[in-house]
């Protein structure tokens, strides 16, 4: 039995640039996430400081990490769509 995909996939010329873009965004998010862990472990009292609307840094940073994931996901999708449009349509034209 072979290990190919469950459905027949079209070739994707945009795979490499999308993978690179994904890695860049992954590292950006990881830095923000690591920052959260570092503040919590090295300076936990900082997390209790009021930042905005009476909310402390822990709440703002926590909600921020969740919202950032959603926003970066949407940006990633828009950029991937553009890359796919550019490279895959260009390939179809050549074919």
């Amino acid at each position: 039995m072979h290990h190919g995909p469950a459905v027949k996939l079209e070739s994707d010329n945009a795979a490499d640039p999308k993978a690179k873009l994904g890695l860049v965004l992954f590292f950006v998010y990881s830095l923000v996430y690591v920052g959260f862990i570092i503040i919590n472990t090295l300076s936990p009292k900082t997390m209790g400081e009021s930042i905005v609307l009476g909310l402390n840094l822990a709440v703002v940073y926590g909600f921020g990490l969740i919202l950032l994931a959603i926003v970066m996901g949407l940006i990633y999708n828009i950029m991937c769509n553009r890359i796919e449009k550019k490279l895959n349509i260009a390939q179809e034209t050549v074919d």
């Binding site: 290990h3 994707d12 992954f26 994931a69």
Partner: peptide, 20 residues
């Protein structure tokens, strides 16, 4: 939730391409 960032940016598409 942060774990989904790894899934989206790193794993989703390549895994779809490779597996059955």
């Amino acid at each position: 939730l942060a774990g989904w960032v790894v899934a989206l940016f790193v794993v989703a598409e390549p895994l779809k391409r490779l597996g059955k």
